[in-house]
């Protein structure tokens, strides 16, 4: 733009450098202004405050008995909470990790061994595996069974059989009390 402005200046030599500086400044200010003006438009597309308010969920674990499973909603998805029995814990820990499709020891997937917290979305194509309700088919490993394409998870939520490529995801969570966790 500066070049063309110069082309139209025929024979005006005085103040040319000052004119260039002014035009440069004006262009710079214009550029900054446009960038600053565009920012809110793009920013408005990020998750809004009401969505962010639901980005964490607190769960009180006290009412969940040993052997019981609880499903809670977190960021629009189900989270499976399993108060594991000693047998389930042992079964999870006794597995040869190197034989797993997605090798992970049970200790890497829990904070306290009697509580398993995993996202209840099958890593194959996103169905919700069965196993949370009494009477549900839990599959041969006593974990979870996905009815869509037959993925089978163990008592640590790891993939053992079927088409899913990875273990059920462990969401970020922390204990905010003895029996209270905050997910997310």
């Amino acid at each position: 733009m500066a070049n063309l402005a110069d082309q139209h200046v025929t024979g005006a030599h005085n103040g040319e450098t000052r004119r260039d500086f002014l035009i440069l400044t004006a262009t710079a200010i214009g550029g900054v202004g446009v960038a600053a003006a565009i920012w809110p438009f793009i920013g408005s597309l990020s998750p809004s405050r009401d969505t962010l308010a639901l980005s964490t969920t607190e769960v009180d674990l006290a009412p969940v008995q040993v052997g019981q499973r609880l499903t809670v909603a977190w960021r629009g998805k189900p989270v499976f909470i399993d108060h594991r029995t000693p047998e389930e814990i042992k079964a999870a820990q006794d597995v040869d990790v190197s034989s797993l499709r997605d090798p992970q020891p049970d200790s890497a997937r829990v904070k306290k061994p009697e509580w398993l917290v995993i996202v209840g979305v099958c890593t194959h194509l996103g169905c919700i595996p069965l196993g949370q309700k009494t009477g549900d088919d839990r599959g041969p490993f006593g974990g979870w069974f996905c009815p869509c394409h037959g993925s089978i998870y163990d008592t640590s939520g790891r993939i053992r059989q079927g088409p899913a490529p990875a273990n059920l995801v462990v969401p970020p969570y922390e204990y905010t009390g003895e029996t209270v966790i905050k997910i997310g």
Binding site: A5, G15, R18, R19, L22, I23, T25, A26, I29
Partner: peptide, 9 residues
């Protein structure tokens, strides 16, 4: 700035 630029041009 734009006024000054306008006057100059």
């Amino acid at each position: 700035v734009f006024y000054a630029a306008k006057r100059k041009i």
